[in-house]
Structures are given as C-alpha cells and as structure tokens.
Amino acid sequence: MNGFGTIITGIGVLFLFLGNLGVLRLPDVYNRIQAGTKCTTLGAFLAILGIGILEPSWFWKACLIALFVMATNPISSHAIARASNKIGVPLCHKTVVDQTKDFKKDRKT
C-alpha cells in the first residue's frame, strides 16, 4: 500500500511539473490556459489522492479537497478566458480559424 501511494503521488507531481512547463512554453494566452487547467487539475487530484492512500485516516478529507479543486479550477480558468476573449487579447500566428465574429453577431441580435 505504501509503495502504491508513493507512485500515485509521483505521477501527480510529474503532471504538475509538466503543466507549469506548458504555461512557460506555449505561445499565447488560450493555449497556456489549456495546459494550466488540464495538467494541474489531474496532477493535484492524483497527488492529494496519493497522500490519502498513504495515510488512511485522512482519506475522506483528502477526497473532499480533491473534489473541491476539481470543481473550482475549471470555473476560475473559464472566467479568465472569457475576460481575455472579450477584451480581444491577440492570438498567436499559428492560429487557423477564428469564429468569434459569428458568435458576436448572434450576441447583438
């Protein structure tokens, strides 16, 4: 049981590190939000769950914190992304298509 919890925590820590690396490397705001949300959500979930397995009397509280992180993290990222789309933060030069104008046309009517 001990080794299992250690390995789960290690995978979580690795994903956290990759998410942070993605925030540094990727070219524009939206791609950074993709890396920063997905990788850190799974990374924090696995790391906290691994601690819960290592210390069995903490398991329920660790599950509560993990569920809380999983519920609030997409919402705060979505708030930042919506704000930066509304004020028109520029996209990077690799972008293929941008259909925001069609959406805004719907928004006016």
Partner: peptide
C-alpha cells in the same frame, strides 16, 4: 496555475 500547485 501556481495556486493549484500550491494546494497540492
């Protein structure tokens, strides 16, 4: 991103 990392 830092906030989520710090909770873990």
């Amino acid at each position: 991103t830092i906030t989520t990392t710090v909770v873990a």
